[in-house]
Design a protein around this nucleic acid. Structure first.
Lengths: 194, 194
DNA sequence: TAGATATGATTGAATGTTCATTCGGTTTTC
DNA sequence: GAAAACCGAATGAACATTCAATCATATCTA
């Protein structure tokens, strides 16, 4: 791993454990085994470090989402794979989840960023557009809405896994259920409306 | 409004606009029209201020959630009221949403807090337990899971409203849809499994 | 090939700023 | 006239950032 990545990974770990505060440059330096000054060789400022880290992680997330995807598959299968990929990513590497949630709710993330070439939202929009076009998803709901909702639910289910996982001896069946619940919500609905 | 609340509200506003960082005590003092020293008359430290603010907001949220609830109503109606209440709260007062998301993903929020007498989760658990017992919700899924999932989706839908609300000329119908999608996911499912 | 020179990488102590917190004194309340 | 509330300048710690000096590596020169 090159030094730039080392620095970003150290920052990520620090943010996971101590929050967006709690990561002074001195500690980033120590945890990535470089001198404080070196960080400024790679990043203009702490803010820029955070921003680059964000873009670095978005790329990682998009990569994970795509893994094993194939647009020839039935959409339900694609959906379940996507779900599983995301959940695995977030559960295995808490830090990404932690960083993103803090980032999105901080002033680093501006309304403008949400709009302009956001790889991640583009990818999700395309994915759900496929599902709508294939006739397997509800029509009449914009893909943007589906994607934000589904992603939000994945994040929630990650929280369930993490916080309650051990104590409630929650079995795999129960957790697998969540994807089913969401699928039942977004799939093409049968005629009779309750 | 008493001074203690004034201080908490000023902190809340500052965190909404400038994040968990960006709210120095000097500015809290200015925005609440109080001297810096006075803050320490009401709160032991900045950390304690944040913690008290959290509990203050949890109480507000529980309060909003309950508004107009009545356990004699059909559960779908109760669910829709709950949904609407939450969404209204979060959309009208962005700061609560912003604060909570930052708080939950910061070191202030410990795993332990999640467990011990959390008014909010208690309330939600009871609410969804009612739904399961009434036979109107899926059985076989723990209320804890339902509640975290539903709440996560509400938060997502708030994000949709806020970020895309204006640009996409998203009509009420579309937004109302989200609650329907979620309801279709959690309600008792018809026999045929797709 | 040995050395000379340049370019880039790295260091960590020093700097100046920002900020939480304190405290001696003042005002308000009862 | 005591107790509580309040003030805001002063204090000291923590921190981001800088910079003069050192080291590493590549490129050139005779």
């Amino acid at each position: 791993m090159n030094k730039k990545e080392k620095i970003m990974e150290a920052t990520l770990d620090l943010i996971r454990d101590h929050g967006f505060h709690g990561c002074p440059m001195s500690m980033v330096a120590k945890n990535s085994s470089v001198a404080a000054g070196t960080i400024y060789h790679y990043f203009e400022s702490k803010d820029e470090l955070i921003m680059e880290l964000y873009h670095y992680l978005v790329a990682k997330v998009v990569d994970a989402a795509q893994s094993g995807d194939d647009d020839q598959l039935p959409f339900k299968e694609r959906f379940m794979r996507f779900w599983h990929n995301m959940k695995k990513l977030y559960v295995q590497d808490r830090s990404i989840h932690r960083f993103m949630e803090q980032f999105y709710n901080s002033p680093y993330f501006t309304e403008e960023m949400e709009m302009t070439d956001n790889q991640w939202h583009n990818w999700m929009r395309n994915f759900f557009t496929d599902g709508i076009n294939s006739g397997e998803l509800r029509s009449g709901v914009k893909p943007e809405i589906l994607s934000i909702m589904v992603h939000g639910t994945i994040l929630s289910s990650v929280k369930v896994t993490i916080y309650h996982g051990k104590k409630m001896d929650m079995d795999q069946i129960n957790l697998g259920h969540i994807a089913e619940i969401v699928w039942d919500g977004i799939k093409k609905q049968p005629e009779a409306k309750s």
